[in-house]
């Protein structure tokens, strides 16, 4: 039985809204989602070479949230993430070379091989931090928002977490504190219905997550997380209100991961969810449904796609090659940064 069917409307009503975007903006969203998809697929393809000795949590199927939400942020805005951090890092503009070096445990990885794939960080583009403990980044992001408010630096902080993250006490604690202090933060919940293999129904009562968030006195909404434009609009609206002095926002995006919680490949066949359910969501794939939408609206995407794809594939090959050739950290590196100078 399909437990969590796709219930969104896709791009059905979006053609009329297209005129407010430039063609290059619309194509760029596609390019960024496609890039994440191809990077993730290549990581997956190479995972069993065992050269990336790190756990992976692929975002295949969840590209629209990372790309749509980050498109509404500026570079100096801050992004925090949970363990499923590839999309957040790339969406915020994180350096692909440094990411792949990190995943290959190399000295020039974005965290010097101390973080691995769950701790991708790139302060130059505002990819501020991530935590592998579910919910762990939520109060840290809230603290960053407190610092922004204190310093009046105009930055908006956003934090990605999953449906499981909302079950952690710190999520509620952070929502309360952000609401109390009216902090400039967006809590962005990617609800993909499963925490590892535990479905939402065994973990939460039957009510909407964004309604629960609303109970903390926070402006909350729900979006179709497969629709990059819907994600972008919701985030943009939240960012604008926050920059105007508004308090925190909570966005729930309903998404689906096409792969297992961790590692390469899907694990639906083990029985915790139906293959049929995944296939249903795959028919609403964020990359391909957006591609079809652009194509139907004559954005010329069909003619551009082969070249875009070629470019991305070349970049990915180059970055993997760079990572493989990069030096490993040395023994002395192990003892650095236990304490700060």
């Amino acid at each position: 039985m399909v437990q969590y069917p796709y219930e969104g409307q896709g791009f059905k009503d979006w053609s009329g809204a297209l005129e407010k975007y430039s063609d290059s903006f619309l194509i760029d969203l596609f390019y960024k989602m496609l890039r994440i998809r191809l990077i993730e697929e290549e990581i997956e393809n190479r995972y069993f070479d065992d050269l990336m000795k790190t756990p992976i949590h692929l975002v295949i199927g969840q590209e629209a949230t990372a790309v749509g939400a980050c498109a509404a942020l500026s570079t100096s805005d801050l992004l925090y993430s949970g363990h499923r951090t590839h999309g957040a890092y790339l969406g915020k503009g994180g350096d692909l070379k440094k990411m792949l070096s990190e995943m290959h445990c190399k000295a020039n990885g974005c965290a010097g091989s101390r973080g691995g794939s769950m701790h991708l960080i790139d302060p130059d583009v505002g990819m501020a931090w991530s935590s592998a403990i579910v919910g762990g980044a939520i109060p840290i992001a809230t603290g960053a928002a407190l610092a922004s408010q204190y310093k009046s630096d105009q930055n908006v902080t956003m934090v990605f977490f999953g449906d499981g993250g909302t079950e952690e006490g710190v999520c509620s604690e952070s929502l309360n504190f952000a609401s109390l202090k009216q902090l400039p933060i967006i809590f962005f919940c990617e609800n993909n219905f499963y925490s590892v293999q535990s479905p939402l129904r065994t973990r939460q009562s039957q009510r909407d997550i964004f309604r629960w968030a609303e109970g903390h006195g926070i402006n909350s909404s729900v979006v179709d997380g497969t629709n990059v434009l819907e994600v972008y609009e919701a985030t943009k609206s939240a960012v604008e209100k926050i920059r105007d002095g508004g308090g925190p926002h909570f966005i729930e995006a309903k998404v689906y991961r096409f792969r297992a919680h961790g590692g390469a490949g899907d694990d639906s066949q083990t029985g915790y969810r139906e293959v049929e359910e995944r296939e249903m969501w795959e028919r609403h794939c964020p990359v391909e449904s957006y591609y079809s939408f652009l194509d139907q609206n004559n954005l010329g995407i069909k003619s551009q796609r082969p070249e875009l794809q070629k470019q991305i594939e070349q970049e990915i090959r180059d970055c993997f090659e760079h990572a493989l050739k990069s030096p490993e950290p040395k023994k002395a590196d192990l003892f650095k940064y236990v304490y700060a100078d």
Partner: peptide, 19 residues
């Protein structure tokens, strides 16, 4: 608030951002 874990995280995040 009496949210010891949350507030410890808030302090950590604020400290990472210069406070």
């Amino acid at each position: 608030p009496l949210s010891e874990e949350g507030m410890m995280g808030v302090c950590t995040g604020a400290a990472m951002r210069g406070l």
